[in-house]
Amino acid sequence: MSGNEQETANYSSSPSRGRRWKTSERVFNVFNITLMILLCIIFIYPYVNQLAVSLNDSNDTALGGITVYPRVITFENYNMVFSNSMFTSALFVSVVRVIVGCLSGLFVTYSAAYALSKQSLPGRAFFTTVLLIPMFVSGGMIPTFILYRMMGLMNKFPVYILPYLFGFYNMIIIRTFLRTIPESLEESAMLDGANSVDIMFRIYVPLSMPVIATIALWMAVFHWNDWTSTLLYVQSKSLHTLQFMMYRLLKESEVMMQIAADRARQGLASGEDVPKITPESLKAATLMVSTIPIVVVYPFLQKYFVKGIMIGAIKE
C-alpha cells in the first residue's frame, strides 16, 4: 500500500555479514519493538475510543468505561448529526470549500509555476523574489483582518478561498517538477501554432498529473481542516464549517441546548419520543464525520504527501 523511499539503505539495523546479534543488541531489539507497539497504541487509542463512543448508545456511554468497542451499538449519534440542519449545512460548506479551494488554488499556483519554469522569461528572478518575500515578513493578524473588512470579505464565502489562492512552497514544488519536462515538446507544439496557454493545458498539465495530485491533496487537507478562518472572519452561522462545529461543541454549551431544543421540536412534530443525546456522544460523532474522510484515505496516499515535503526540502 504505502511506499516510503527511506528504507533503501538501512545498514545500521541489520547485523553485518556472518555475525549474529549480540545479546545486548537482542535485548535492545526487544525493547525497541515493545516501545514501538506501545507508542502505536498511544497514537491510536484516543481515536479508536472516540470511534467506539460515537457508535455506542448515548445513555450507556454516560455510565463510563467505554474502551475500544461499543457496548450498545447504535447509529443514533450519526443519525443526529446528519439530520440536524446545523451539521448538514456545515458539511456542505466544508465540501464546497474543499472543491472550490483546490481548483482555484491549483489554477493560480500552477500558472505561476509554469511561467516561472521558463528559463527564458525576462524578469523571472524579480517575480520569484516578490513572491518569496511574504515567506519572511507578514502584516500580521490585525492588519489582515482590517483589510478583509475593507474588501467586504467578512462573512462571505470567498474569505475561505481568496486568501489561499497561492502558496509559494507549492509553487516551488510544481516548478521543480515542470523543469524535468523536456522543452523540445513545447518547441514542436509552438511550430504547430499553439500558444503558451494552449501548451500549458494540453501538454504540461496532463504530464504533471503526479505533482498536481500531490499539491491537490495538500490543499484539500488544508481546506478541510482549517477552522481559524471561520473563527476570525465569519460570524454567520450558515457559513460555519464542520471543523468549526467541533470548536463550537467544545466551547459553547448553548449549541447543545439548541440541538436539544431542535430535537424536542422534531419529536413533537412527529409525535414520537426522541432519544436524548449527550454532548459526549455528539462530540464523538462530529469528530468522526469530520476526520474519517482523511483518516481512511491517508494511509494509501501517504507516498504523495511524503513526496511533497521531500521535493520542498531538497529545493530550499
Binding site: D226, M246, L249, L287, T291
Partner: peptide, 10 residues
C-alpha cells in the same frame, strides 16, 4: 492529518 481542533477534541 487531524486538524488541531480535532486533536483538542480527542
Amino acid at each position: 492529518f487531524l486538524s488541531w481542533i480535532a486533536v483538542v477534541s480527542l
